[in-house]
């Protein structure tokens, strides 16, 4: 097994890994949840995902992180699944309708 040893690696390999990490840390610091309850939920998601395949600690780790955060925020009412789906569609349309090289922005009504 290759553990990579002390080879330097970026803290986050994808920008969205960093973003979902930062959102979680910010919400925790603002007092919306305790880190221990976050860790318990996240651990449960990792365990569930790990039943199907061995997680490598990279992309699948942050997929589990995102899924945990989404369900946590849906449960607490901080971010409803319907609203998130609507915004995801709006962002998708924004990317598809913005010429390459220009900043992508949400349409004002989104």
């Amino acid at each position: 097994m290759n553990w990579c040893g002390d080879k330097p690696e970026p803290a986050f390999s994808e920008p969205w890994h960093a973003q979902v990490f930062a959102i979680t840390v910010a919400l925790n610091e603002a007092g919306h949840f305790e880190w221990s309850s976050w860790a318990a939920r996240f651990g449960a998601t990792l365990k569930a995902h790990g039943l199907a395949k061995e997680l490598d600690g990279g992309e699948d780790y942050f997929n589990a992180w995102l899924e945990t955060l989404e369900s946590f925020l849906a449960e607490t009412g901080m971010a409803e699944m319907g609203a998130l789906q609507h915004l995801k569609t709006a962002w998708t349309e924004a990317y598809l309708s913005t010429p390459h090289g220009q900043p992508v922005r949400l349409a004002p009504e989104a």
Partner: peptide
């Protein structure tokens, strides 16, 4: 058009916008 980010990247984008 711009390159479409991955599914999880778009979900994080949506989360950040809403929050």
């Amino acid at each position: 058009h711009s390159h479409l980010p991955s599914d999880p990247a778009l979900r994080v984008r949506a989360l950040e916008t809403l929050l």
